[in-house]
Design a protein around this nucleic acid. Structure first.
Length: 749
DNA sequence: CTCAACTAGGTTTTT
DNA sequence: CCTAGTTGAG
């Protein structure tokens, strides 16, 4: 391979950006301008030409998907496996925090709470404080708390600043309790990951210095979507001093102010607009040539976005030809809209242009609620599709339950997880019992789980309840001991079976339980996948990976299916054929956008993002009436449709008459019939799981006594030193180990 | 304590 | 329309 042939593939501007390695650098990269290529080449250039060690580079993105793509492409360029920090903000912080959690007074095994957990915590607090959750919903409080954390306002600060009127006092109280409970549960929420990292850096100069020295070159993707805390994080790392005491700021940020679509989540567009002011001496490179879309699509995008004020001056251009016009279809209602889109997909997939390649199509909508209609329309036509987002996979009850078992095994202080599973499957433990345990824990200042370990307490319940509780505590404890000795999938199987969770589902004999079982087996495949990737992955590492997974990351580019997702999730992706349904005022732009002046601007940027995802063709559709939660309303065409240059569009209704006839005409899906759920495989996994469980149960029946000679599958032969309950202490040749009976692969000799 | 039936209230976007 | 939460009967 030629030394710098990867640079030859870049255009002048891209190359200029890639080769500018010292000092602050702002790359203003328009949609489809080859930003990822530029970034990856820059990394390759740093490593190969500037002799920078990969260890000294930090690249941060917003999504796991973007991180993965960047890593793959860098690897291709420098041709070897590189262990470099190319991570999302959150996973980078998580990695740092795992190392130094103790400095902040957290346990090393702290849990990461997702929004569902957060809600549960706030709900409990409301109950405790007698707050009417009908007047003030948990999400109301969480919204404020999250914004506070982004701005680095602690509960204490909040109470100092606000706290004048009743409402603010209440929020302050809830916030304070929330902080306390998370800390007590040894848990952090998503916002904490950044917040605590910044606190760590400010609190401990030595640690900061260590990371400053390590990360001598920092790159940030999608810089327009950074919020204040992320900015602070970057600033702290980048404000390093070299040997002579000069400030070294090798910070390279890449972004496009027109694609800032997360202001509602605290993204501060000023970060990118004022980068040059923030970092004096910054160099700016603009990438304005678009390699993705046809000229018509690009012009359409431009005609919409040019209605925004206060943009960085730039204009995308392309060498590509005009291409097809943009098709607009005004449907009767949302069903008609879906029908139209499905028939268009059939039309193109049947023609030579798109072949049977359904991967080329995407339906990008504003809200997840819209997906349903499309799913129905596509499936009646045997068009394979894949929905991303909506209820996250990990939000499904059964998955969440099993995750809580695992969380508890990893971190016993996680009261939330315990409460969730203490009566799941049913163990006859209701409100009364739980309340008793709770007060006890409170009095002692211990975690709920620790109360469960107290035999005296347990014995005070009815025999049935106490036996169940004892078993549960034993189960968690045993796996806590064994968790690093066993394979991840075995741990999962063991918990699934020995908790009785699997049996409870099997006994139900309902369709729903059946599908839950399938999901659980699917989850096992997921776990097995991680295991394959890294056979030594332990529970903690697995939880870490899973905690920060978004649904978009499950997007499997290999699967031959139409992609359905929100416009937000589509950022950073591209498709030859893109549909944008629901172009109606109130839906897109959403009605909330009309409250604030810049609300509409953000929606417009979202529209711009959507349009620029399309490579070859773009469809915009709307429905004259739309049924939303029961009520059918007349709609008005979106303001964005009106803003779009009409010369670029093929008018409404062209396909109307013709296509209505295609209703009910199915493609005979010779190749369209890829099954979504490999049913047999799941059944097999289920049987296997059961078999393994039986073996475990049998092993659990073994009884050991002090002095017995035993053999362990991994540690070899040993002698029993002590047996107490489920825990057994064994002296091996060169070590003494605690093992859990019934789980550890032990045999009596 | 569990389950079934009913009611009331809520929908933007995500790491 | 859907889900989460409540209530009343076993």
């Amino acid at each position: 391979m030629g030394r710098t042939d990867y640079l030859d593939k870049l255009n002048d501007k891209q190359r200029e950006a890639a080769m500018c390695t010292e000092g602050p650098l702002l790359i203003l990269a328009g949609a489809g301008s080859g930003k990822t290529s530029t970034m990856t080449c820059r990394i390759a250039y740093l490593i190969r030409e500037m002799d920078v060690h990969p260890y000294n580079i930090l690249a941060v993105t917003f999504t796991n998907k973007a991180a993965k793509e960047m890593r793959d492409r860098v690897q291709k360029l420098i041709g070897e496996g590189v262990n470099m920090w190319i991570l999302t903000f959150h996973s980078a912080c998580l990695r740092i925090l795992r190392r130094h959690a103790e400095v902040l007074g957290y346990g090393r095994d702290f849990a990461v709470y997702d929004p569902t957990d957060q809600k549960t915590v706030v709900k409990n607090i409301c109950k405790e404080l007698n707050i009417d959750t009908k007047k003030f919903t948990p999400s109301y409080f969480l919204g404020i708390i999250s914004h506070c954390k982004e701005q680095r306002i602690s509960a204490k600060d909040y109470n100092n600043i606000f706290g004048t009127d009743f409402k603010e006092q209440m929020v302050g109280q809830v916030y304070g309790q929330y902080e306390k409970i998370l800390k007590k549960n040894n848990a952090m929420d998503f916002d904490d990951l950044l917040l605590k990292t910044v606190e760590l850096f400010e609190q401990d100069e030595e640690i900061l210095l260590m990371y400053q020295n390590r990360f001598r070159y920092i790159m940030v993707d999608e810089y327009q979507d950074t919020n204040m805390i992320q900015y602070t994080f970057l600033r702290l790392l980048a404000d390093a001093r070299d040997g002579d005491g000069n400030v070294r700021r090798n910070l390279c940020v890449v972004g496009d102010d027109d694609q800032c679509i997360y202001q509602w989540r605290g993204a501060d567009i000023r970060n990118i607009l004022e980068f040059e002011k923030d970092f004096p001496g910054a160099k700016t490179v603009k990438l304005e040539q678009n390699y993705r879309s046809t000229a018509n699509i690009l012009a359409a995008a431009h005609s919409v976005i040019s209605h925004n004020r206060g943009r960085k001056a730039k204009k995308l251009w392309t060498d590509a030809e005009d291409g097809n016009k943009i098709i607009y279809y005004n449907a009767d209602d949302e069903k008609d809209e879906a029908r139209f889109i499905a028939s268009e997909i059939n039309r193109l997939a049947g023609a030579d242009e798109a072949g049977e390649d359904y991967r080329q199509f995407a339906i990008l909508y504003r809200t997840n609620a819209q997906s349903r209609t499309f799913e129905e329309a596509l499936s009646t036509r045997d068009i394979p599709y894949r929905v991303l987002g909506g209820l996250r996979y990990y939000d499904r009850k059964e998955i969440k339950d099993m995750m809580c078992y695992m969380r508890l095994v990893q971190n016993r202080a996680d009261d939330l997880a315990l409460v969730r599973i203490i009566n799941e499957p049913k163990r006859g433990i209701g409100g009364k019992t739980l309340e008793k345990l709770r007060t006890l824990a409170q009095v002692r200042g211990s975690s709920l789980f620790d109360v469960l370990l107290d035999d005296e307490v347990i014995a005070s319940f009815s025999s049935k309840v106490s036996e169940n509780l004892r078993n549960l505590a034993g189960l968690i404890e045993s796996y806590g001991i064994e968790r690093d000795n066993m394979k991840l999938s075995d741990l999962y199987d063991g918990l699934l079976v020995n908790s009785g969770y699997m049996k409870a589902l099997e006994d139900q004999h309902t369709v729903e339980a059946e599908s839950r079982l399938e999901n659980l087996m699917e989850f096992k495949t997921v776990i097995a996948g991680y295991e394959k990737e890294d056979p030594n992955m332990n529970l903690a590492e697995f939880m870490e990976r899973i905690a920060l997974l978004a649904d978009v990351d499950n997007h499997d580019a290999e699967e031959n299916a139409v992609t359905l997702m929100t416009l937000h999730s589509a950022k950073g992706l591209e498709f030859p054929y893109v549909f944008m349904p629901g172009m109606e005022d109130g839906l897109f732009p959403g009605w909330r956008a009309f409250d604030r002046e810049d609300g509409l601007e953000e929606e417009r940027r979202l529209c711009y993002v959507g349009i620029t995802r399309a490579k070859k063709r773009l469809w915009l559709t709307s429905a004259r009436t739309r049924t939303l939660y029961g009520r059918t309303d007349y709609t008005r065409e979106s303001v964005f449709l009106r803003e779009l240059d009409q010369k670029l569009m093929d008018g409404d209704g062209i396909y109307e008459k013709k296509d209505r006839k295609t209703e009910g005409v199915f493609r005979d899906g010779a190749s369209a019939g890829t099954p979504f759920k490999p049913f047999d495989q799941l059944k097999y996994a289920q049987a296997q799981t059961k078999q393994k469980a039986e073996a475990m149960a049998k092993a659990a029946g073994q009884s050991f006594q002090v002095g017995d000679r035993v053999a362990h599958a991994k540690f070899g032969e040993g002698r029993v030193l002590e047996v107490s309950g489920q825990v057994i202490r064994i002296e091996f040749k060169d070590q003494v180990r605690k093992l859990a009976l019934g789980i550890a692969p032990l045999e009596k000799l």
